[in-house]
Design a protein around this nucleic acid. Sequence first.
DNA 1: GCCGTTTTCGGCCCGACTGTTTTCAGTCG
Length: 593
Amino acid sequence: MPPTPKPPAPPNPSNGAIAAAFEELGDLYELDGAIIHRVVAYRSAARAVRDAPVSVAALAREGRATELSGIGETLQQKIVELADTGTLAAAEKLRSRFPPGLIDLTRLPGMGPKRARRLFDELGLASLEALREAAAAQRLRGLRGFGAKFEETVLAALDAGVAERTAPRFLLHRALGQAERLVEGLVAAGGPEVRVEVAGSARRMADSVKDLDIVAAGADPALLTSALAELDVVESCERTGDAGARARAHTGLAIDFRVVEHDQFGNLLQHLTGSKEHNMALREAAVRRGLHVSEYGVLEDASGETHRCSVEEEVYRLLGLAYIEPELRENRGELEAAALDGPGALPELVRAEHLRGDLHCHTVASDGRNTIEQMALAARERGYEYLAITDHSASHGFGNDVSPDELRRQIERVTEANAAIEGIELLAGSEVNIMPDGGLDYDDDLLAELDWVIASVHTAFGMDEREMTDRIITALEHPLVDALGHPTGRLIERRVPYAVALDEVIDAAARTGTMIEINSNPDRRDLAEGPARAAAHAGVPILINSDAHGTNTLSVVRWGVATARRAWLSAANVANTLPYQRFAALRKRAGKG
DNA sequence: GCCGTTTTCGGCCCGACTGTTTTCAGTCG
Ligand SMILES: Nc1nc2c(ncn2[C@H]2C[C@H](O)[C@@H](COP(=O)(O)OP(=O)(O)OP(=O)(O)O)O2)c(=O)[nH]1
Ligand SMILES: [Mg+2]
Ligand SMILES: [Mg+2]
Ligand SMILES: [Zn+2]
């Protein structure tokens, strides 16, 4: 007689769900007045979980989640509790004491957990609406530490709708466009000695940015801040201090501007480039060496001397570290790898000049704007050795479909263009739709006539994770699928990735010899940096592709290169840095299998 | 709550800015 089947274990919570639970619990503990370091521990644990490339719930069940920096025994148990019961008892308890509206209050500028808690305790305020009424009735000023000015700013923020919508983040390419004009204007105003640079998440080439952080030195701060306010891109200056200014561009993008003396420029640039997590870890490590880092210098306990650094390299050198490229400064292992006396090493990051080809672009055959010849010449102009022409496939909508017969003619046209145009190898390819069942929308005979197939999901995004993962893995197992295009379908700040278990997709790509694309469209940058790092680590050849729909967008690989660099990739991880013959041999269809 | 080239306990990055604080707390970056 078979043993009675155990009830199926509930599915493990995703890393995102665990991270959200820790963030919420951190917020609740903060409202509860817990010591701030405990709150910070929850937040850094949340980040460690979110960044982890594997299921942290599965790790915790094996007792191995503590291998992640920031997760100890207590939090490992909480992960198991969340996986087993679907909730955290500690959070349940605190949720019953603090209504959800209380957390909403802290979305207002100047309103943190301490003030929100006092408004709740002393005035019973537990929602934005109740706060508005109390402020309008001038009931806040009766409390110690609150005044008329505070009531004013609360009402102004509520009227401006700050509470309803979260402040939008700007895509990197839009932010950098504005940054260029700001830097130019400040350099023009500051005179020949001035140094101005973009810092913050924009310098780190993040997917999107909350604000533009700009640093300057070598000119009078008052002169620079007034010049900033006068620039045509700047709408208003919100406040000006001795150290800099806070302004807003006409686009709505906030600007953080800081100025120091010329010999502190390296200190300030290092500080304002961040990230916050990188800075905190760097400063903690420095303290252990008897050094104190700030944007003004590095104070040495032993001598009492403050070392000013005019360049960033000097800051890192003082701390016994190799220079760290801005894209790596996220406290994801770069400080350990940079230690000059340690065993690790930083990667030699891939650069745009390394790229020798592009394996995803469109022409007038589907929704592109240029012909095969025009795309080929533009690619050659960029110095490429090869280009794959990959128009959409038979089932693509919007009148951009390419029927099997049309694809046969397209193959002939590519072959002719390849013969006619010197100095670049053209691959006859297709961006083939992955159908809901994982099948492709051309026959294998036709796919075999192509030089290159990149397969992508363009329909039925709403499938559940299991179905979507199986769908994509089925496509990866097809011997004529050379690469997977934009693997999650995300649009940065606009559309979340479809549900898919990327760790399984990455394993399947590694197993089947399928390449994975980083689509460089600045709205996509898909595969994102986290999974791209995991994919490269698993040995999957990565492609940095433009998905250009015209000759003028081949250059968007700049953004894909940025994502690759943030993923710690070197040229050796990126297949389209190879010379053509070696690239061609790496395609699945060229394989000996 | 985490963590360790002085520690398994006692620390935990550092500064700008604001408001009402008579000497600094709270918030933010
Ligand atoms: N040492 C230290 N530096 C910080 C802290 N918070 C922020 N910074 C530094 C590092 C950040 O990159 C820099 C700019 O802050 P931002 O809030 O603008 O963040 P960042 O530009 O990294 O991202 P974002 O603007 O959100 O896209 O200031 C902190 O708590 N400590
Ligand atoms: Mg910023
Ligand atoms: Mg900022
Ligand atoms: Zn596509």
